[in-house]
Design a protein around this nucleic acid. Structure first.
Lengths: 284, 284
DNA sequence: TAGAAAATATGTCTGACATAATAATTCTTG
DNA sequence: CAAGAATTATTATGTCAGACATATTTTCTA
């Protein structure tokens, strides 16, 4: 049955089949690709891999996953390390364990999608079309309001920090990579200025969203820079302590972001289709 | 120096002092109270206790906490169990470890306050005045918009589920306890109907908020029931697929919730002050 | 059908060694 | 002799192995 140890999965492929009983799931070769490796920092990378299997629906909600000893041997680590990986996933609400009953995938509603790591895992594991829409929808709800609060409640030091971030973006010029960090600091600075711990925690979601935007911008390196004047507008309204203006300015920035993402994704799609074409022609 | 094992802390008190070097923090008797115990489900309750120490500022951002062996012996568990507790806190962004360097408390910005467990720990560990304000501020931002989206995008099954939750609230009558669960289902139902995984994940925050409201309502058992017509109004607008109406109705419900919390907290404060009075008079 | 017994997966403990970052030491050099 | 660079020693986390405890589930028996 070509059983493959997960630890040796590098550049191999996988699938899963129902076997003798519910929790007896085996891996064997098929045509589906698998993430590169699980080599270093075992517990975290194992958590990531298990999360991937859950997020992509290989292990659906309610599924009982293989027992710890078996998983440990598949990932080629000790049971202790595996348990640490599982406990990370427990903390993020993906799984739950009961003595003797085993470990099962929790209902989707219980997954803490606002967790930064889980967010990053998700956006590297799933096709980002639907995902991008959703994340932008939430940003559109939260960030303009946070911006309004920031304008009213923020201190001058808060504003100065955001200003510094803006200067960093400006200084980055057309350099996508250098632009990314201060961009995040800009948005995070606004959230921090609200003084609301929950809005601050939302920074993790924004970070993941910006990372996604960054990845997408590879097909259009000039796009990020275009957002600069929109950021300036937001900042000006904040300095003016104009809540409504800040809200609207941030809303416009969100509009621009949406445009960039939509166009980038259609480009991406087109590119993928072309690549696929080339590949099939080649294999013929 | 009166060193106390944490596992035996029941009804004792603690404080911490700087000792020989940075990470050498010892506990000894002072006048500050400590949570009851850490008896069952060790890793989770230990995580809770460590989280409490961090949240209350005993272990500030950047602090290097005692080494694992020492912590383990203080909590009277094996190093394995302690490590599992720490790994939960790592997953929630509270701490990070580096080999040899030790385990330190991460910056507040990195704490995932939108995590349900962490939220619950926070609201049982901290005076809830400021906390309640913040959580309500976020709800006020998110829920009305989610409600508007729900009205537009939700399916009839979604609405039916919310309707069932409403009926459950109605059926609960004046019973605070029976009212709580369908109340949560109502709000969660709206989030679920948006079809947005991130808004759905926000349900954890709402759950914690409602739990807090529930705890506060003990001083005014009739308060929850008063929200029923406001919920009905929300539901009617949703059924009518009226986005603006739904948004406004939810906004009004948030207003009411705020009133309840504010008045409950002032009552609470008054009551606490009286209790304190009685106690000091007694000890004289 | 109900209750008792067996099986089994997670939970916990112990002790050991590996590894990497820090602290202490030695050595070199101006 | 002092300052700095390179080396060694220390130590806290990371990982491993094996064992036993405990709580459910499953199976067997009355």
């Amino acid at each position: 049955m070509d059983l493959i140890i997960l630890g040796q999965w590098h550049n191999l492929s996988h699938h899963f089949v129902r076997a003798r009983n519910k929790s007896d799931i085996l891996f064997h070769r098929t045509g589906i690709n698998v993430a590169k490796s699980a080599s270093k920092d075992s517990p975290r990378s194992i958590a990531r891999e298990v999360a991937r299997l859950i997020l992509t629906g290989v292990w659906r909600e309610g599924t009982t996953l293989p027992r710890e000893i078996e998983l440990a041997s598949r990932f080629d680590v000790s049971r202790a390390s595996l348990r640490e990986a599982l406990s990370l996933l427990k903390a993020k609400g993906l799984i739950a364990s009961k003595q003797k009953a085993g470990t099962h995938v929790r209902a989707r509603f219980d997954w803490n999608m606002l967790d930064e790591e889980l967010l990053n895992w998700t956006l590297s594991a799933l096709p980002t079309q639907e995902f991008a829409k959703q994340i932008l929808e939430v940003r559109r709800i939260v960030e303009p309001e946070a911006c309004a609060i920031c304008a009213v409640r923020g201190t001058d030091e808060d504003f100065a920090r955001i200003e510094r971030a803006y200067r960093g973006m400006d200084a980055a010029g057309m350099d996508r990579v250098a632009y990314a960090e201060p961009d995040l600091q800009f948005h995070r600075g606004i959230l921090i200025a609200t003084g609301n711990d929950f809005l601050i925690a939302f920074g993790a979601t924004v970070a993941a969203a910006l990372r996604m935007s960054f990845d997408l911008s590879s097909t259009n390196p000039g796009a990020p820079r275009k957002s600069l004047p929109y950021h300036r507008a937001v900042l000006d309204e904040i300095w003016a302590r104009n809540a409504d203006g800040a809200r609207q300015a941030m809303h416009k920035l969100m509009d621009l972001t949406e445009q960039n993402i939509v166009s980038a994704m259609s480009r991406q799609k087109k590119k993928d289709a072309e690549d696929e074409n080339v590949r099939t022609r080649r294999t013929r």
